[in-house]
């Protein structure tokens, strides 16, 4: 029996197509990891790996960097072997956590970025792990919270209603009101009396409330205080302006305080003054001698006396001289 060559070719092509499609599906769905294991493995130890399954993703800062290759029980803890893609460096202080991708129970391992510059984890090394609460634990805690809330509400209810023969809050209030009924009535009566007096303008408070004159006076006082405050404010503004001017070195005071040159001049002046005063004290120079030497004083006194006598002489001759002067001018 001999086949049609075309038929054989078709079958061959068809078969090759099938093999190619199987290969495509394989490459797409398993990342080609059955034949060769790319990358390196690290180990993550947990108390409980929960829903973690073979092939679940390992994500670093949300980016897929590998997958769970194996989950196993070693001693009293569960270990997940993580296959990390080549070229991905995980710092040795990074933490691995089992996280849920959704409410449908898909889990993945989240690895944080660690600190920059930390040495990388080597193949076969163990990564640090952190425990996060899973949904069941959260639900259990919510249940506990509900019980506590229930108890708290029960206690409040008991406090209101009373328990084991003890009276509740309302009963106590009732008793309080019944026992002190007279006192309360009295107090209310007094209050009514006081408010009546206030209303009719009796007493200081009543007058304050009811007398318009008092109100006007109070208003005037307040206005005065206000204007005084305004003046004070103006004064403060002026003072502030002066201080600002001084600070900016304007004006005499400003120059004196903030101008270095003026300071230096003052220093020189002070020094000169001191020199002068020293000289004066020592009796140097004319003025010093004048101050310190009493000979000069006596001389001066003598001179003055002479001058006095001379002036008196002149006074006696005054009228004669005056006539002489007038005559001279006439002739």
């Amino acid at each position: 029996m001999q086949n049609n060559p075309q038929q054989t070719a078709r079958v061959g092509l068809f078969f090759l197509l099938g093999v190619a499609l199987i290969w495509v599906a394989f490459e797409t769905l398993s990342d080609g990891k059955v034949f060769k294991d790319k990358g390196y493995t690290i180990i993550a130890g947990f108390d409980n790996v929960r829903e973690l399954k073979l092939g679940d993703e390992v994500r670093m800062a949300g980016v897929k960097v590998g997958s769970v290759e194996e989950t196993r029980l070693t001693g009293r803890r569960a270990e997940a072997v993580l296959r990390i893609a080549p070229g991905v460096i995980i710092p040795n202080d990074a933490n691995a956590t089992i996280l849920s991708a959704g409410l449908l129970g898909t889990n993945y391992i989240g690895v944080d970025l660690g600190t920059p510059g930390a040495p990388p984890l080597l193949a076969g090394a163990e990564i640090k792990t952190k425990i996060t609460a899973d949904i069941n634990t959260i639900m259990a805690q919510l249940g506990d919270l509900g019980t506590k809330l229930d108890n708290a509400l029960g206690s409040i209810g008991d406090a209101m209603k009373g328990k084991d023969g003890k009276p509740g809050l309302f009963q106590r209030l009732d008793t309080l009101l019944a026992d002190n009924g007279g006192n309360i009535t009295e107090t209310m009566k007094n209050l009514k009396e006081v408010s009546g007096k206030l209303n009719s303008g009796e007493g200081t408070l009543g007058k304050l409330i009811n007398d318009p004159k008092l109100h006007d006076e109070l208003l005037a006082a307040v206005t005065d205080i206000k204007s005084a405050a305004n003046n004070a404010k103006g004064f403060m503004t002026d003072a502030q302006a002066i201080v600002d001017q001084v600070k900016s070195g304007q004006g005499t005071l400003g120059t004196l305080i903030y101008n270095d040159e003026a300071g230096q001049n003052i220093k020189v002046v002070t020094k000169n003054l001191r020199d002068i005063s020293d000289k004066l004290a020592k009796g140097e120079g004319t003025l010093g001698k004048l101050i310190n030497d009493d000979v000069l004083y006596r001389d001066a006194q003598g001179t003055l006396k002479k001058v006095d006598r001379m002036v008196e002489g002149l006074a006696d001759q005054g009228p004669i001289s005056a006539v002489g002067v007038v005559a001279n001018s006439l002739f």
């Binding site: 068809f14 078969f15 197509l17 099938g18 093999v19 499609l21 199987i22 495509v24 599906a25």
Partner: peptide, 13 residues
């Protein structure tokens, strides 16, 4: 035996 996987993978895709 040879053709079933080929037909099935084509069917799947």
């Amino acid at each position: 035996l040879v053709m079933m996987p080929v037909l099935t993978i084509i069917g799947d895709l």
